[in-house]
Write a protein that binds this DNA or RNA. Sequence first.
DNA 1: TATATGGTTCCAGTGACTGGAAGGTCAAGG
DNA 2: CCTTGACCTTCCAGTCACTGGAACCATATA
Lengths: 136, 136
Amino acid sequence: MNIGAAAEVTGVPAKTIRYYESIGLIPPATRAENGYRHYTGIDIDTLKFIQRARRLGFSVKDVGGLLALWQDQDRTSASVKALALKHISDVEQRIHELDSIRRTLIDLTDRCHGNDRPHCPILEEFAQGSDKGPKD
Amino acid sequence: MNIGAAAEVTGVPAKTIRYYESIGLIPPATRAENGYRHYTGIDIDTLKFIQRARRLGFSVKDVGGLLALWQDQDRTSASVKALALKHISDVEQRIHELDSIRRTLIDLTDRCHGNDRPHCPILEEFAQGSDKGPKD
DNA sequence: TATATGGTTCCAGTGACTGGAAGGTCAAGG
DNA sequence: CCTTGACCTTCCAGTCACTGGAACCATATA
């Protein structure tokens, strides 16, 4: 399989596959005589693994750790779970922040008439509002 | 006020103030005779405005738009509200994505024993799981 | 005078790609 | 045989919003 076909079956763009290789997330692909990268079974599985982990928001660095664990027969499920739990906690933290922002914005827009006149509580809040962050 | 003092009262780091100037988000600061940047009332208010808008997740580009609206006496509150509503919708979209990710991860970790043995449903899912994204 | 603490500029790095230029390779059609 | 188009290659630059650091200048104090 050339890189284009690999991209198609894994959902990882060709450019991104080359990028992953360049940063060492995946080993250098074997090359055909013409210099084209060549992908087979395990390469494809690895790219799919990466794609699924990335879609769940793991950083590329964490995906590297997950890949190492995946390939390590002596791993403990506890080590994998720890990584996942840490990630869940990060995701939840981010959700809380966004929800807090959301509530503040909704409060502000509710108070803005959204008409032809210049008066706007949103701008007023930005101009004179408290220095505290969004309400938690 | 020198840049350090301005940074302290606005909460925007000195480096970031210089950066905002370099990208044109704020006009070039006036300079003292020694070349130091000098900030007064309106500059400080502007930086505080920027800081509050940024904390609510507006992009620097959007903050530029908000600043322009703020300084435009003929603005309509509708134009401000439109920007805010668009941002709320983006935030909500991101929250949904993260929540979907969160639920998938929790499902996975619940099924992982997290013990000394290698068997782990999390890795199995990444290795053989569906190519669909996190469950919505 | 030495030091500490400001300020200045400019360059480089972050994360995770993505776009684009310039060029090599290959299969099919005229 | 030549061209066209679709693929592949490398490398450089840009994205976003900063942040770190080097090298240097200015000011106040012990």
